[in-house]
Design a protein around this nucleic acid. Sequence first.
DNA 1: AAAAAAAATTGAATCCATTCAATTTTAAAG
DNA 2: CTTTAAAATTGAATGGATTCAATTTTTTTT
Lengths: 211, 211
Amino acid sequence: MTGLRERQKADRTQRILAAASRLFRDKGYDAVRIEDIAQLADVSVGTCYNYFWTKGDLLLAIVSMEVEEVILAGKSVVADPPVEVALALDSLINIYFGHSLHYLSKEMWRTAMALSIGAPETPFSSRYTELDGLLVLQVSDLLSELQRRGYACLDFDPQTMGQVVFNNLNQMFIEFVKQESMSLETLIAATSRQNSALARLIAQDPAENQR
Amino acid sequence: MTGLRERQKADRTQRILAAASRLFRDKGYDAVRIEDIAQLADVSVGTCYNYFWTKGDLLLAIVSMEVEEVILAGKSVVADPPVEVALALDSLINIYFGHSLHYLSKEMWRTAMALSIGAPETPFSSRYTELDGLLVLQVSDLLSELQRRGYACLDFDPQTMGQVVFNNLNQMFIEFVKQESMSLETLIAATSRQNSALARLIAQDPAENQR
DNA sequence: AAAAAAAATTGAATCCATTCAATTTTAAAG
DNA sequence: CTTTAAAATTGAATGGATTCAATTTTTTTT
């Protein structure tokens, strides 16, 4: 069934991804040369380019896998959110930001986000953008769910507000990775404050819940 | 007073900026080589690097000038804002986005924003980030002014909400420059819708104005 | 299983941003 | 107006991402 060629292709992709992942994290994206990745993955430089359009796209492939996991983790919050709007958003924050530096360095995030803007047409840049879209949907779903349960007022369109909330989270995260000295705690605290401000405006007046 | 050296320095800076500006816009940032800029500016490659850290920083210098103008233009809106919160935010949108493509191409914006994230420590990257900070302040000032005049409720902190609004605008602008096919009208319409949603939540109930 | 076709691999060559040691220009000192 | 010191300019050299024509491997055909 799965021919030799197909198997080798999968193998090589994995080896290249693993090598790049390790090296980017250990030595830093800029300091790693394609030649280093090729050597560690036991392929030639040319082969790396057969599998990934550019060095940057290779990074984006790695980062995208991380974002996929985050989206998966976020589903549990949407499925069963805290009652308070502010708490619900905080839960999402914690999932989105909480593990951001486990496998990726700030430099990797910076570079990946920069590439997704500066070179948006590569395969994994598109993928990254697509994942951002899914994150917007997830936030929207959460807001929608909060409305459905009567925890949030019905005065707003969850899609629109979901995008606003996500755009804010994303921009805050960008500022976080831009400043090497900024701690995760500071990021989470600042974002939580902003979400609380929004939450106050869209939270359901408890009295309204009586009807 | 102004020594020869000082005058030449200013001259050369201007020539380099003018040459780069023209070439980036005409041929596209990526297609322009430092050698081309040096030739048109009538200096050597090395001199370009004496004035600007990198090709990217040269671009950021150009883009920063544009942002400075936008901030200046924004002051008039803050000084005398429309009565409706939504309209006030729309005015700001129009100023911020309206002329964005007059002197700069989408590619230039994309590259500049990418650089400000990916290489945040260069002189003009810092400058660009600083200008973003001023834009946040400007939006905050507008909200504050709207509160002062009783057009907006007092239930929110203008600083916090100003940052949220700006972060959203910025992220929307990023999406705009990422998609070569997206029109300015589409961007403005989408952003206006989001601002309206926020405006509805923070607008002063007219009845409250009676006291 | 040999031959032909298709797909992948390879590493040397190319292209450009960036660097740097040598040279030239300007300012300061005598 | 020399001499000396400081600042700037210069373009050839460096380094690394990317490309590409030649070669090798795998698959398909006969």
